[in-house]
Design a protein around this nucleic acid. Structure first.
Length: 286
DNA sequence: AATGAGCGG
C-alpha cells in the first residue's frame, strides 16, 4: 500500500531532511490475529513513500507426539509434582531452537531442486545405443557397433570403393584402421567367441578373503592351481603402500574348477588364518 | 571387515 505522506512538515523541510530525516520504520504485532505490520518510509523523486507490509504469522503447533509426551505420567522423585518442571529434580538447560530450511507446506518442486537435477542427470550416454552407460560397456558392443561402423564406412565413400583388383583389401583407400576381426574375410564367429569367453571368465571368479597380508600372488597361484587352469589372479593391495588388503580374486577358465576350489579351500587353514572362499560378484555393474 | 584398476566423453 503506497501513499504520499501527509505530515505537518513543509515540503522544503522534508527535502532538507534527506533520507536520514524520514520517520523510522515501525513494527507492530497483533498477537490475537497473528498479524505483523511493518511500516517503512523512503524517498523517491522528491516524494516520501510510505510502505505498509503485513505478514500473517502462522502459529506454531506442537506435534502430536510432543503433545502426547507432555501427557505422560511423572515418575520417581517427580511423581507427585504438578505439570511443568520442578527445579529440585529437573535440570533445565538452555532451549535449542531449530531452524528449518524447508517448509513442509511449500516443498521445492523436484525439477527446481538443482541437486536432484544433477543426480538424476545422465552422466554418460552410450555412443552405440544412446543408453545410460559408457560405450565400452554397451551390451551391443559386439553386435551393433561393428554394424554401425560398416554402414558409416559405406556411406562415407561410395564412389571411391576399392576396385576388385585392389592389392590390399585389409587397408582400404580411406586409411582407416579396421581391426582384424572386422576385416573382409575374417572369421566372423571369432569376436563373439572371445566375448563369450570373457563372460565365462567373469562367471568363474572366486573371492578369497582372510588372507594373511604377506600372501603373494604366487602363493595363491600355488594354492589354486590344483583345481584347474587359472586365467587371472588379482590380489588387492593398497595403491600407495603396496600392502595387501587381505583378499583376492581368482579367475578360473572353467566354472566347475572354481566351484571345486571354493569347496576345497574355504575353511582351509593357511598361514595361521582360516581362508574364506566364495563366488565373486561382478566388479562393475552394467 | 572386505567385491579389483583404469580406460573414456
Amino acid at each position: 500500500m503506497l501513499d504520499t505522506m501527509t505530515s505537518g512538515k513543509s515540503w522544503a523541510e522534508q527535502v532538507d531532511q534527506g533520507d536520514e530525516g524520514l520517520p523510522p520504520p515501525t513494527e507492530e504485532f497483533d498477537e490475537k490475529r497473528g498479524i505483523k505490520t511493518i511500516t517503512e518510509y523512503r524517498n523517491e523523486d522528491g516524494k516520501v513513500i510510505k510502505t505498509i507490509k503485513t505478514y500473517k504469522i502462522e502459529t506454531v503447533k506442537l506435534s502430536k507426539s510432543i503433545a502426547q509426551r507432555k501427557m505422560w505420567k511423572k515418575y520417581g522423585a517427580a511423581a507427585n509434582d504438578p505439570p511443568g518442571p520442578n527445579p529440585s529434580n529437573t535440570i533445565m538447560t538452555e532451549e535449542v531452537f531449530m531452524q528449518f530450511v524447508q517448509n513442509k507446506e511449500t516443498p521445492v518442486p523436484e525439477e527446481e531442486d538443482p541437486l536432484s537435477k544433477l543426480t538424476k542427470q545422465k552422466i554418460v550416454q552410450c555412443r552405440i545405443c544412446k543408453g545410460d552407460h559408457w560405450t565400452t560397456k554397451c551390451p551391443y558392443k559386439d553386435t551393433l557397433q561393428p554394424l554401425q561402423e560398416k554402414l558409416e564406412e559405406g556411406a562415407k565413400k561410395p564412389d571411391i570403393a576399392p576396385v576388385s583388383s585392389s592389392p590390399a583389401p585389409n587397408k582400404p583407400a580411406g586409411g582407416k584402421y579396421i581391426p582384424p576381426t572386422l576385416r573382409e574375410g575374417a572369421n566372423k564367429g571369432r569376436g563373439e567367441t572371445m566375448s563369450n569367453q570373457r563372460k565365462g571368465d567373469e562367471a568363474a571368479t572366486i573371492r578369497v578373503t582372510n588372507l594373511s597380508e604377506d600372501t603373494r600372488e604366487s602363493d595363491l597361484q600355488e594354492l589354486f592351481r590344483p583345481f584347474g587352469p587359472i586365467s587371472r589372479i588379482y590380489l588387492a593391495k593398497d595403491k600407495n603402500t603396496g600392502q595387501s588388503k587381505g583378499f583376492a580374486f581368482i579367475n578360473f577358465h572353467r566354472r566347475e574348477d572354481a566351484s571345486r576350489a571354493i569347496q576345497g579351500v574355504s575353511g582351509f587353514g593357511y598361514d595361521h588364518l582360516i581362508l574364506n572362499v566364495e563366488w565373486a560378484k561382478p566388479s562393475t555393474q552394467q
